[in-house]
C-alpha cells in the first residue's frame, strides 16, 4: 500500500504516524506541504533518513519546485503527476490527511 502525506512534519504528526504504521517496504509519497519532510539539513531530515531505511520515499516534483525545496535527503525519489498516477496504479493508496 502507498501511503500519501500532504502535511508538513513540523506542524502535523501525519508522516510520523504513517511511517510508524505502514508495513515495512511500503512506499511513502510526500505531496503538497508534505514535501518539506524531504528537505535536507532540517531537524526532521534524520527522521526521514530513518524512514528511508524501511520505505521507499517519493516526492511530487511540482510541489518541491513550488516550495523551493531544492536539496533533498539522500535516497528520496522524485515523481511528476504522471509518476504519481503510476504509483497509485501499482498499489492501493491511503491518504494521511
Amino acid at each position: 500500500m502507498l501511503h500519501m502525506v500532504n502535511k508538513s512534519p513540523f506542524s502535523n504528526s501525519a508522516l510520523e504516524e504513517a511511517a510508524r504504521i505502514a508495513s515495512k517496504g511500503s512506499p511513502i509519497l510526500l505531496i503538497e506541504d508534505g514535501v518539506y519532510a524531504a528537505r535536507a539539513g532540517t531537524s526532521f531530515a534524520p527522521k526521514l533518513a530513518d524512514i528511508l531505511k524501511d520505505h521507499p520515499v517519493y516526492v511530487l516534483t511540482p510541489d518541491l519546485k513550488a516550495r523551493a525545496v531544492d536539496k533533498l535527503v539522500e535516497g528520496v525519489e522524485q515523481v511528476d503527476y504522471s509518476g504519481f498516477v503510476d504509483l497509485v496504479e501499482k498499489d492501493k493508496v491511503h491518504s494521511w490527511v
Binding site: D80, Y81, F84
Partner: peptide
C-alpha cells in the same frame, strides 16, 4: 492535476 494525468494515461 492527478485526474488530468490519469485521464492522459
Amino acid at each position: 492535476h492527478f485526474i488530468k494525468a490519469a485521464l492522459d494515461k
